[in-house]
Design a binder for these strands. Sequence first.
DNA 1: ATCGTCATATGAA
DNA 2: TTCATATGACGAT
Length: 187
Amino acid sequence: MPRLEQPIPRGALTAVAIDTPAGTFVARFSDHGLAQLDFPGRTFPASARASELLADPSLPRWVKLTKGALLAILAGRHPGEFPPLDVSSGTEFQQRVWSVLREIPAGETRSYGEVAAAIHSPKATRAVGSACGANPIPLLIPCHRVLASGGKVGGFSGGLEWKQRLLMVEGVIAQELPMRAASLGKG
DNA sequence: ATCGTCATATGAA
DNA sequence: TTCATATGACGAT
């Protein structure tokens, strides 16, 4: 299949700050939907302004949906309606991986190997890890539900604390940084 | 249990 | 082509 070497050029994104009990996230929207979500504590853009919000009538709704989904996921509740997700920045392979991630329900996990098998590239486990790391919309695209084999937590671009926190909220792991075993059923 | 090493897919430079 | 990865399997300790 054709290899997509360069991301598809897109117009400028509109950044919007979203406050949650876990901190202020920054969501960036394209014409097609939510394109990027940044964890709190990153460089805060000066572009989250009301005038931009008013520029596109679909934005306020997307922001509301994004915030609602975010708050629900952080609280371990079932998220309601998602905004449209614009994953056009990813290569075809990455988008296949991300679409698999979106089908993992809260409270469940997959291994990198299982995700690789799901996209019919059973040997691409390592590439799946890279694709997870390239996920532009964490939380809504639940890359945190992909663990290494044997219940090991594995890595996380946004910081392992976040991965752990999310897995705890979803009842997958119990407490502190096991860093390796998710100590579930077999104690 | 922990570590080192090798195998392998994908993507960026 | 070379290098870097959020892996996985295996063997040595």
